[in-house]
Amino acid sequence: MPSPPLQSGSGRHARIIAAWLLVGCALVAATLVVGGVTRLTGSGLSMVDWEPVSGVIPPMSAEGWEREFAAYRDSPEYRLVNRGMSLGEFKRIFWFEYAHRLLGRVIGLVFIVPFAVFLIRRMIPRSLIPRLLLLFALGGAQGLLGWWMVRSGLVDIPRVSPYRLTAHLALAVLVYALTLWTALSLLRPGAGKGDPEAAGGARLRRGAALVVGLAALTLLSGGFVAGLEAGLVYNTFPRMGDGWIPPDLFGASPWWLSPFEDRTTAQFNHRILAMLLLAGVTALWWACARRAPAPARTWAHTGFAAAWVQAALGVATLLMFVPIPLAALHQANALVLFTALLGLAFELRRADAGARMVPAAKRPPAAPRGRDRPRRIR
């Protein structure tokens, strides 16, 4: 996504808008982590109604709690999983889901109120308005998609659809990525002014884009692992059971649905993608350490560290049968890694653009090749 052109003298406004967008990024990240904890604690189906306005206020009296608990007792989860649960136990799972939904509403307010103020004060460049409206529309769609996901677990089977869960995760990651990229474009507008030889070049830029795509794919595969509870099978590493390839791989029917509906296949795919991502981030870090400009190297170092921490957290989470604190850290660090890779891709794109804009007269002469190379005098 190209940087939005800013009018002369609007640098201060750009920094204010960027800070506002970064606050939004932090809230989206918090919502993702709280959503993961909500799923891990089995709290996601505790609120059986969707009330976008009145749902902001939780039960405030004993009667209110009894009404909420009575509605939950009519759900499949209570009848098939939590029969006999006390009101105190219900309150514990209720607050996790309530916090998750409340964060979603806070994000909406944090976006729309400042946006209206900035628009009235003409602080937003015209080129940026469509992008901000797109972000607002995607945020609204995320709320609808979240309720559509919850509805899948309130019908017959007390478990949300892994397809809907992963779609909900994918849209959240998309909103986060677009918001972060827009904020970086405002904080560091225009093209870089680095040395063409130090700008990283098209290969680094393409490599970074490939690794960002691989990171996003690994995140989405984690959504299917979470939706299928695939982390609770084959809790060994590096092998899966007694072998490198489990015997029940591709166990769904038809077989091509196995990556999305079979627990063993979902975990196997997540492992393979995670190892490929670790190798890709390491190779990209090594290349950037020698060729990239300083801002890109900072992002590369952060991504390299986050990738190895992520691998360690993933293995520990698997070996310990998915304890909630470790699983939450694994999800939170995935966002740290994704952020670092996005920042790296942004800086390489910016530096590469700057190298292309250096006038030919100021570029260092190219090294002679072939017949033009001077012969060595012996």
Rank of each mutant, 00 (worst) to 15 (best):
T182K: 05
L217S: 09
G222D: 11
P374Y: 09
E89N: 11
S75E: 09
I157G: 00
V212I: 04
A274D: 02
A334M: 05
I107S: 08
F321Y: 12
M275V: 12
K362M: 14
P374M: 08
W147P: 13
F250K: 05
V81F: 06
L6H: 10
V106K: 07
S127Q: 11
G354Y: 00
V211R: 11
Y72D: 01
A30L: 15
A26D: 01
G153C: 08
A305W: 15
F338C: 02
L344F: 00
R101I: 03
E89C: 10
Q142H: 12
Q331K: 10
V175Q: 03
G146R: 08
A177L: 11
W299L: 01
Y78G: 04
E347T: 03
I324E: 14
A30P: 04
V322E: 12
G55A: 03
D372V: 08
R290T: 01
G55E: 02
A266I: 15
R239H: 08
L228E: 06
L329M: 15
S253Y: 07
T166M: 06
A292F: 02
L217N: 04
F118G: 11
A191C: 02
A353V: 00
F69A: 05
H330C: 08
A355H: 02
A361F: 06
L335K: 03
L45I: 04
R164N: 07
S152I: 13
G44M: 10
E261L: 14
P189I: 00
T264N: 09
L228Y: 03
F115K: 09
V117E: 13
P5Q: 07
P189W: 02
A351L: 00
M47L: 15
P374F: 12
A307T: 04
L27H: 10
V33E: 08
S185T: 04
G153H: 09
A215S: 15
L186R: 12
L144W: 15
A274E: 03
W299Q: 06
L278H: 05
E97P: 01
R350Y: 00
A137Y: 14
W50P: 00
R369S: 14
P295Y: 03
D262S: 10
P189F: 00
W244K: 09
V150L: 08
R12H: 13
A208Q: 10
L134G: 15
V160M: 09
S8T: 13
L154H: 05
L184Q: 09
R12F: 13
L284H: 00
A215F: 07
I245N: 05
D156A: 13
A279G: 13
L128H: 03
A252F: 13
N235G: 06
A296P: 01
F321C: 10
G36T: 11
D195K: 04
K193I: 01
A279W: 07
R239E: 10
W244D: 10
S75T: 06
W147L: 13
R101Y: 02
P364G: 11
A334G: 15
V233Q: 03
A202R: 15
T182Y: 07
R159T: 11
A62K: 10
W65C: 14
L214H: 12
